[in-house]
Amino acid sequence: MRRTPSRRLLAAALLVASALAPMAAFPATAGPAAGAARHDEDGCPPDGFGAGLTARLDRTIEDVRKKAGVPGAVVGLWMPGKGCYVRATGVADKATGEPMAADSFLRIGSETKTFTVTALLELVDDGLIGLDDPISRYVRGVPGGHRITLRHLAEMRSGLFPYTSDPGFIKALLSDPRRSFTPRETLAYGFRHANTFAPGKQFQYSNTNLVLLGLVIEKISGHRLADFIHHRVLRPSHLRHTLFPQGAEFPEPHPRGYTDQTLDGSTADATNWNPSWAWAAGAMISDLQDLRRWARIVATGTLLSPGTQAQRLRTLPTGFPGTSYGLGIFETNGWIGHNGSIPGYETVTVHLPARKATLVIMINTDIQTGGQEPSTLLARAITAVATPDHVYDGAVVGR
């Protein structure tokens, strides 16, 4: 195959100890109804930044979108005291020419990690787990698990082999992208391989880490990961258009998603591919306004204690210039958050505390240009215009 998805695919069964107070039972997670009425909350006028800057952003986005071959894009930029900018451009469906809509739902790929790690850190604040607990305490069969901590997993410094780099996994997924994977099935692909380095020694982006953290959350809470995130993360954050799908379901409206992560490298429509393989690392769905709200919550620690948020924000070098990684988040030139990439879709959701600014980008392709993620090209170009002293360059993570 021309390019394996191993570089870009999302780029815990034992009883809880009796000393832990049981959580109230959760009903099944409910996502937004298809076609449900939704109102525009951005309140952003067409020239929200003034005619000059708005026109520059329009030209910049269109230039990058066309050069990178991005069918459709939704961009939101909010800068208190300066203005705001919300645009949907291009098409949601290349066959019909249906225009991209600002209220679209999108698969958010690795941005799911910010939700999973937030859920984990809430359990830390509850006193039910510790970040320096070994993963072997919660999940059996992890190679070297007695030396790998939950912190190592959240920081991407465990040394566990990424299951998305296993040739057998790649073939299984791309041979039948609508099949369902369980967390244990995906982990088995990674556990076939030796660990790549000793825990804590370096950074390596690996979805294996997040699948394990999802299993820890399920074991300690006694509930499905989707239900725990819905009740402990989404509901208190008032994110009514964000969901953790059980399979390939996808609320309307949503654009078609285009990928070249196929067995022969040809372009395919990945809209209805099943994201179960990504689970705690990348299966979630959201929209522009929810991601806008979520960006600030993640960066400021609204759901966490100050001490736990401080640990989350302690970012470490990734080995790539300009980008460091903390507990399920990255920092790049002042912007804090995460990007996401899953076959057919890419997103960027980041907050700039120095300006209290928020940037959200949603596009319906993950096909790279010159070896770079199209969402990164857009984010870099937009911030070069709007915040030239804080240019986004988070080109390494989220694959």
Rank of each mutant, 00 (worst) to 15 (best):
I61F: 13
V211R: 02
G326L: 07
P143N: 06
L239D: 00
T60E: 15
V385T: 14
P199K: 04
W273E: 03
I220R: 07
G319H: 06
S206M: 05
G307Y: 06
A51K: 14
P321T: 13
D260Q: 08
L150D: 14
L263Q: 10
M362K: 11
G168E: 13
P388R: 11
M100A: 04
H146I: 01
I329D: 01
R38T: 05
I61M: 10
L234Y: 00
A28F: 09
W78E: 09
E373W: 07
P5G: 09
Q309L: 06
A33S: 12
R65H: 07
F320L: 14
V74R: 00
D132P: 00
V233L: 04
T302K: 15
K67W: 05
T259H: 15
W279R: 03
D366S: 14
L313I: 04
R296Y: 08
L234T: 03
P134C: 10
R235M: 13
L291T: 12
A188H: 04
A19W: 08
L378E: 02
G52S: 09
Q289P: 05
R157C: 08
T96W: 07
G97L: 01
A280M: 08
G344W: 01
I297K: 07
F161M: 11
T302G: 13
R314I: 03
S341C: 04
L327P: 00
G48W: 08
A357M: 13
R235L: 15
A102M: 10
L288V: 05
L234V: 05
K82M: 10
G326K: 07
S180K: 04
F320M: 13
G265Y: 14
A280K: 03
R235W: 00
H39G: 04
T89N: 02
D260T: 05
P5C: 08
F203K: 02
S180A: 10
L123A: 11
L234P: 00
T114A: 07
S180H: 06
A37R: 15
L225H: 01
A95W: 06
L106H: 04
I129F: 03
R87L: 09
A30W: 00
V348F: 00
N272F: 12
A248P: 03
N195E: 02
P32I: 05
A188I: 07
L215G: 06
R240S: 03
E98M: 02
H146G: 08
P183Q: 09
T89W: 03
H338N: 05
W277D: 03
R296D: 14
L377W: 05
G340T: 04
I170A: 08
H230V: 12
V74H: 01
V385Y: 10
S18E: 13
K113F: 01
Y345V: 10
T332N: 09
N364Y: 02
G370C: 10
H254T: 01
S6P: 01
L14C: 09
G127C: 10
L10V: 12
N207K: 05
R107I: 10
M23R: 14
R59Y: 05
D126C: 06
